[in-house]
Design a protein around this nucleic acid. Structure first.
Length: 214
DNA sequence: ACATTAAGTGATT
DNA sequence: AATCACTTAATGT
């Protein structure tokens, strides 16, 4: 494994850097690159690995039978996906869909290793627990947002989050996509965006929205 | 020039 | 806030 990957691990996952654990990660992990919009794992697929995000961002969403979707949270470098850690024994099927938000580089850790390391390495255990906690907090934030915020507040929050994740104040998306992510209709999004533009919060063009007030 | 897709609007529930 | 029906604007071939 080359040095840039090791450096990256050190930057984002510093606290789980124990010599032996690092050696094991080198030995067992597979480097994977996915490009934007690629589906990393889909509903019902068997989970055989857990990802450590090195570069990029991944969006995690839920979908019901009628193909309505709802964004749960984003995961960034330094994160792992909690849904894949929920069951430590046996194989489980994914309850969520993970899509590359941008071009993303990650390390895939086989689920068996994950289980072995849980008891073998204290750093690994606390990393997983902490990550699980973070994911839960983000989920709570999303729930709050759905329960207590009106659609216009949800929309601007989403745009800001997205701008942050992409490290770019210009969010490249369509009104329809936003409607899908927030599980509302395109017309509603169009009208709310217009209001936001009039109040100077954003500026829009076809296929992109510039968030002025981050 | 034409077809396709994105975005805007008014009316209704 | 959702849905419908329709218009207008932008973009690809």
């Amino acid at each position: 494994m080359n040095t840039s990957i090791i450096n990256n691990l050190q930057t984002h996952y510093g606290y789980l850097f124990q010599k032996e654990l690092l050696d094991e990660i080198e030995k067992n992990a597979v480097l994977k690159k996915v490009s934007e919009a690629e589906i990393i794992i889909d509903l019902g697929e068997e989970i055989t690995f857990i990802p450590l995000i090195l570069e990029g961002a991944v969006k995690v969403l839920r979908e019901n039978e009628q193909e309505q979707e709802l964004l749960l949270y984003f995961i960034e470098p330094g994160d792992t996906c909690a849904m894949t850690t929920t069951c430590c024994l046996g194989t489980v099927k994914s309850e969520i869909r993970a899509i590359a938000e941008t071009d993303t580089t990650m390390l895939l850790i086989p689920i068996q290793q994950m289980n072995i390391w849980m008891s073998k390495y204290k750093y690994w255990q606390s990393f997983i627990l902490q990550s699980y906690h973070e994911r839960l907090m983000e989920l709570l934030e999303t729930i709050d947002s759905i329960a207590f915020l009106k659609m216009d507040e949800r929309l601007i929050k989403f745009l800001r989050d997205k701008a942050k994740i992409n490290h770019n104040e210009i969010v490249k998306t369509t009104h329809q996509e936003l409607a899908n992510d927030l599980n509302t209709s395109r017309v509603v999004i169009s009208r709310l965006l217009k209001k936001l533009e009039n109040t100077g919060v954003i500026k829009m063009q076809r296929n992109e929205i510039k968030v002025l007030q981050l």
